[in-house]
């Protein structure tokens, strides 16, 4: 009984610790400006949306959101398409050298972004892709690919070999078997991988900071990091922007909880 109580207290503490900082930011975002300039009060006397209005009215924040969404969606689609093909080939066709290929993929996924940011800056400039959504999406897809290949290989591995063989024998070409049988069976894996890649792209900061220079291609994290303040930091607006930038991800994580957990733990535990 005491043990049960301890578990509940511990869980409550863990949940509070996880939720409190973000909850504080949500509170900040709806506090009237006057109440932000002193503490206490902890809780807002009235709930106001002026900070949200300011974020959207005073800045090109809506444009940044659109940029972020476009870049993340394109990069995710690209990484899923290429990653699932490669993962399928590695898991089901077992080419010689697959172990070395997978090891190389893992090593690439561990590269520190700052190590390649200078060459990518120069290469993107040379290719005319600097400050474009296309350039950013390509870079993101490349950086997310090791994760996508690795996860999809893990998920395809869990689809029985016999199903691939049956599809081929039943008259499917290689791509037919992939599209008609393997891919539909890997939808949970595809969802998990897509979520992780999307979150990675949505959150990425370093490349977004260096490869973009104007609102044309700037994404939300850069916008929040460089939030303009003339005399003092506009904490209310920053909080509002933070909530807007985070809400889609928290929502995705809540709706697809199972898939996110699958994705986070695949490979590390099963693999």
């Amino acid at each position: 009984m005491i043990r049960r109580l301890g578990t509940w207290l511990g869980l409550a503490a863990a949940c509070a610790w996880s939720l409190a900082p973000f909850a504080w930011q949500v509170l900040t975002s709806v506090k009237p400006q006057a109440e932000l300039e002193s503490l206490p009060p902890l809780l807002p006397s009235t709930i106001t949306l002026v900070h949200y209005e300011a974020v959207f009215a005073g800045h090109p924040f809506a444009h940044l959101l659109l940029n972020s969404f476009a870049v993340a969606a394109c990069a995710t689609a690209l990484a899923l398409a290429l990653g699932s093909l490669a993962g399928f080939a590695l898991a089901k066709l077992r080419p010689p050298g697959r172990a070395a290929t997978l090891a190389a993929v893992v090593v690439l996924s561990m590269l520190p972004p700052v190590a390649t940011v200078s060459p990518l800056f120069l290469l993107a400039g040379a290719a005319g892709l600097r400050d474009t959504l296309t350039g950013l999406a390509l870079v993101y897809a490349g950086f997310a690919l090791p994760l996508a290949v690795w996860l999809m290989a893990q998920f395809f591995r869990s689809v029985p070999d016999d199903l691939y063989i049956a599809a081929r024998v039943d008259g499917c070409s290689l791509l037919g078997a992939f599209g008609k049988v393997m891919l539909p069976l890997a939808v949970p894996g595809l969802t998990a991988t897509g979520l992780l890649v999307f979150v990675f792209c949505w959150n990425e900061f370093l490349f977004a900071l260096t490869l973009t220079s104007s609102t044309a291609a700037r994404t939300v994290p850069v916008g929040i990091a460089l939030f303009p303040g003339i005399h003092e930091v506009p904490w209310g607006e920053i909080a509002a922007a933070s909530v807007v930038a985070t809400a889609p991800l928290v929502l995705l994580a809540a709706v697809f909880q199972r898939r996110v957990l699958d994705g986070l733990t695949a490979g590390a535990v099963k693999g």
């Binding site: 973000f22 504080w24 930011q25 900040t28 928290v250 809540a254 957990l261």
Partner: peptide
Amino acid sequence: FAYGAVLVPWAVPTVVSARIWEWI
């Protein structure tokens, strides 16, 4: 609920988390 709560910090973009803590 507990899984969902624990997932929140993971889902918060890093830049946002820096801004949250800067304020705290």
